[in-house]
Write a protein that binds this DNA or RNA. Structure first.
Lengths: 185, 185
DNA sequence: GGGTACATGTAAATAGTTACATGATTGG
DNA sequence: CCAATCATGTAACTATTTACATGTACCC
């Protein structure tokens, strides 16, 4: 039940249309909770029905026309209630770790290339986060909201750093194994 | 499409019944791809239909009776093909990071307690992984499969370590904010 | 007027969760 | 025999993904 709350947060930061939300998800909130435009439109409909958001009055409320939403008091209350809820962390799901484990049984062929590819992707994501950190959180700004958002971004940064470090180590180990396969133990 | 492959891997490591698989998921593979017994039974049915696994012959193949499965060559081939596939990492989903971001907008009340609770849970998981590492990967054992499985466990360990470090820092930041709220800036 | 980007949406399929049903085996 | 545990399964619901449909606005 996180998507509606992700949307409420985004809309509180700035009232937006469905497509604008989709784009903002691709750049910021979506780094921790991604969503496609179809999910977002559907969820906007539900949130509107529930009285948590409303469409800003517009001259031409028709298909193909931009429709902007803003959060109503009930939506803000729901979001606040959500932040205070007790909710256990969900176990991570990593197809890559799973595939490596499968490779332990059926062989590591092709794995090293795939790890290198993932390493490059995580390195790129890390660089992007570091750029965002520099641009959005210069040392002088320091409101409470800024500090919290910075904390969240630091989480993203350290997670990507974890992957970069782990993948680098994994590749060293795997290259060792593959060299041994080629030359014999 | 990872669950069937997680099951194939587990069955290759050791032929099992549905309930045995469920328990093994709770302890090992499930750390990176969790699943409930309902998901597992449903998937076992599909894998059997697809000819990837088969039930070991039994005298009484009835409801309430244990039914053991083993992997057929086609299943092993499918798993090997999967490990060689090109597949991008999926963006992480963390409801906690999301909730912290929401708290930046609607207030941090209750957040510190929740972070402390998560910190304790991740610390416990880390300790469990470290215990598994000690028991399952003593320095002397060093087959290829062992090294790969150890690598996967190291991934789990470092991920939990990330959470422990990040949550500790986050709590320091948050306590600073809340102290400032109480005493004024 | 034709293409492209913008914008919203429907439909269907897959994946995951939650609640409940049913039968076997075993120990008291 | 009854409760607890083991074991398999059905059903319904929620969430997510993928493919496609439709309409508007603007530029050439």
């Amino acid at each position: 039940m996180s998507l509606p709350h992700a949307i409420l947060t985004a809309l509180l930061e700035k009232p937006s249309s469905g497509l604008e939300l989709t784009r903002r998800f691709d750049r910021s909130i979506g780094y921790f909770w991604s969503a496609t435009h179809q999910q977002i439109y559907r969820e906007l409909g539900k949130l509107e029905q529930a009285g948590h958001i409303r469409a800003l009055p517009s001259e031409t409320p028709a298909r193909g026309q931009k429709k902007e939403y803003e959060v109503l008091p009930a939506g803000r209350a729901e979001l606040a209630e959500w932040t205070r809820r007790v909710e256990d962390p969900k176990p991570i799901r990593s197809a890559l770790l799973l595939r490596l484990r499968a490779a332990a049984v059926v062989g590591t062929e092709g794995m090293a290339d795939e790890l290198r590819r993932h390493l490059a992707l995580h390195q790129a994501q890390l660089d992007e986060y570091l750029g965002m950190e520099k641009r959005q959180f210069p040392p002088e700004r320091d409101t409470e909201a800024d500090r919290l958002r910075h904390l969240v971004l630091r989480g993203g940064i350290e997670l990507e750093r974890f992957w970069v470090v782990w993948l680098t180590e994994a590749l060293e180990g795997l290259d060792g194994l593959e060299a041994r396969d080629r030359t014999g133990p």
